[in-house]
Design a binder for these strands. Structure first.
Lengths: 199, 199
DNA sequence: TTGATTTTAGAATGAACGTTCTATTTGTTG
DNA sequence: CAACAAATAGAACGTTCATTCTAAAATCAA
């Protein structure tokens, strides 16, 4: 990578990092380019050498955040088949405990709200969602070897997003009982004969 | 109710209805007062005779939409105890099938995004969430008479919000299999001995 | 009907915002 | 080092937006 290319990717990271912070704090449409630029330590005008518009920055953020989530699922492919079910369960619990994921949740809601009126954003989100779903279905069906892998995947994904949603609506909720609930539900989803054959 | 009072409440409804439509289509912060006023068939300035600011309109919308959701749960109090479990299940499925709830989802996401930076909105949402949760816990614990009512309530609420979330992320999803999944999960939640005693 | 009060319209205001433009600095290359 | 290209700053522009202000229309009371 040449010096120019290095600088370019560094600047783009600066912009995306700054934008992500601003978006979490103020939302996509109240975060101004001036604020983003100040945080990225460059002039507003300079941002336009790397991004065509503010919309392009939003799209890039959505893509990056979705890709992050997808990557974490992809890591599970390397886990041993016998341990996979318990590793997935622990990962799920871990994501509840980590405070950092609340920031992620903030962006998630912003993204979901946005994808209902911005087709480009909707497309990005759907692409990553499909990737995660395919990945999980493969893990559950082929590696763990359970039947009805798609139904189990959907249950799991409902569980994940539902939990994030509830933590936003009720931030004072008792985390430990939520974790117990999540552990049990995950085990139930990843156990044979739990799901009826009428699905 | 005097003529003046009638007119007043009519105008307020006009404004809230118009605002709700605008907010669904463009989001809280891109929907301009001019658009809302045009849709409510009055001048922008006139809106300020009924609402102190745009923020106040947002708060009123959040309150109204949350109250609508809470009301639908309150209706279940009148249902016969023996039928309650199946009525709740059918209600859940119905809410998946109704296309109108997608509009509701749009507003929900907007509201959840907003409540992360607007404490007043957060307060409104938390109040209604607590009301719904208490209501459900009462129904499950006292009317149906199941143990571990709080845990079952939380599972149910996770399920609900999770499903709405997933339908946004993957609008082409097969509804009938989702409904089958929901029916089974609801039955599982509302059946004794489903939940382990370590919760 | 007349006077008073409320309701309504619509233009005016001032701030904020996304974007563009011009100029300056920095870095690279022959 | 000189000359050119890329990077960067920051002011300027045009627009949009929430809000305010002024005045007209409508309603009501007596």
């Amino acid at each position: 990578m040449t010096g120019a290319e290095k600088r370019r990717t560094a600047r783009i990271s600066q912009i995306l990092d700054a934008a992500a912070l601003c978006f979490v704090e103020m939302g996509f449409h109240r975060a101004g380019m001036a604020k983003i630029a100040a945080r990225a330590k460059m002039s507003p005008g300079h941002i336009y050498h790397y991004f065509e518009s503010k919309e392009a920055i939003i799209a890039a953020i959505v893509d990056r955040e979705s890709a992050k989530a997808a990557e974490r699922f992809a890591e599970l492919d390397a886990v041993d088949s016998n341990e996979l079910a318990s590793v997935m369960t622990e990962r799920a619990i871990q994501s509840i405990e980590e405070k950092t994921d609340i920031l992620q949740s903030a962006l998630n809601m912003e993204m979901l709200a946005e994808c209902q009126r911005n087709p480009e954003i909707a497309c990005i989100i759907q692409r990553h969602d499909k990737y995660i779903r395919d990945q999980l279905t493969h893990l559950i069906g082929n590696k763990i070897g359970l039947d009805l892998a798609e139904a189990r995947t959907d249950m799991m994904m409902v569980q994940f997003s539902g939990l994030a949603n509830r933590l936003l609506r009720n931030p004072d909720m008792d985390l430990s009982s939520m974790i117990a609930l999540m552990r049990q539900t995950m085990q139930s989803i990843l156990t044979p004969d739990t799901i009826g054959d009428h699905v």
